[in-house]
């Protein structure tokens, strides 16, 4: 019986192994046909055209573009929400706000994509900013809204873990709530907060549906918020959903881009996990 339980635990390892194999094998084949130098350093991405070009930089800059706007929303506002909930809000306010944020975090991404495309982009245009129909800014902002509750909840957990004796100690010295929050609680929780930031960045990079719907599929190097861009994830999803012949070089690009995405998010996740661990060591 315990063996069966242990077997279930091994499944999660198999999933990771499966992911690595699924990404590596076609990627290695891909890189025999396209040199890594071309893939990582050239800035023209046209894998489905003839002549094909395989410079992944446009997809990376597209990802950075949407991720940047997501971060401008979810990092500062998520932290602000967390400080409010942890240090300022009365129990009754918390009891209302926390479930509402949980609902926001549970909204499917396809719904948020619809919201970005049919509400935010028209709103920006009616305000006189001639963004493209598909643009990095709208998608990024809505990803930020999606991740705001995540940052808020993880950062709040980190702040709640700061012993209340430190708060009492600083209130006892005549500090006000602002000083207690900014000089004691936030510094003491900083590695947990940083971990929530890194995790949010990782998730913004990996978010697919919102960018697929609202950011477009125009692979070019652009840092303009109003431009249409293609992210790594949008390329994978659009190409994977299409009818690409198995074994063709176009098919293998899915895996090469997937591997790039996987390595980036893996590194960020490891950084976040280590930060959380360091934070726990201090307080547990």
């Amino acid at each position: 019986m315990i063996g069966v339980l242990a077997l279930c635990a091994v499944i999660s390892i198999l999933v990771t192994v499966g992911i690595v194999v699924a990404l590596m094998v076609p990627s290695l084949e891909f890189f025999t046909e396209v040199s890594p130098a071309e893939f990582f350093t050239t800035a023209k991405w046209a894998p489905l055209f003839k002549p094909a070009a395989f410079g992944v930089l446009p997809l990376i800059t597209g990802t950075l573009n949407t991720t940047f706007w997501a971060c401008t929303i979810c990092l500062p506002l998520g932290l602000g929400t967390a400080i409010y909930l942890s240090e300022y809000a009365r129990p009754r306010a918390r009891a209302v706000i926390k479930p509402v944020l949980e609902v926001l975090a549970g909204i499917p991404t396809v719904v948020l994509g619809y919201f970005a495309l049919t509400f935010l982009t028209p709103l920006l245009r009616s305000l006189g900013w001639q963004v493209e129909i598909f643009n990095a800014f709208s998608a990024g902002i809505i990803i930020g809204v999606l991740l705001l509750p995540t940052v808020a909840s993880l950062s709040e957990d980190a702040m709640k873990a700061v012993p209340s004796s430190l708060r009492e100690g600083s209130f006892g010295l005549g500090a006000n709530r602002f000083q207690v929050s900014t000089r004691v609680v936030v510094p003491a929780a900083i590695s947990g907060i940083a971990a929530s930031f890194v995790l949010a960045i990782s998730r913004a990079i990996g978010e697919t549906t919102i960018v697929l719907i609202a950011a477009g599929q125009l692979a070019h190097v652009s840092f303009m918020p109003g431009d249409s861009v293609e992210t790594m994830t949008a390329f994978i999803a659009a190409t994977g959903a299409g009818d690409v012949p198995v074994g063709s070089i176009s098919y293998k690009t899915i895996f090469a881009v997937g591997l790039t995405l996987f390595v980036i998010t893996l590194l960020l996740n490891i950084v976040a996990i280590r930060m959380v661990r360091r934070f726990r060591e201090v307080y547990e």
Binding site: P163, S165, L166, E168, G169, G172, L173, A175, Q179, V184
Partner: peptide, 23 residues
């Protein structure tokens, strides 16, 4: 006020004592 359990801030000795004057 001094509390039951010592509750120094996770800062330097200097910064702990300086906390009150600073705030």
């Amino acid at each position: 006020m001094v509390f039951q359990k010592p509750n120094p801030f996770p800062k330097s000795i200097y910064d702990n004592v300086a906390f009150g004057p600073r705030v």
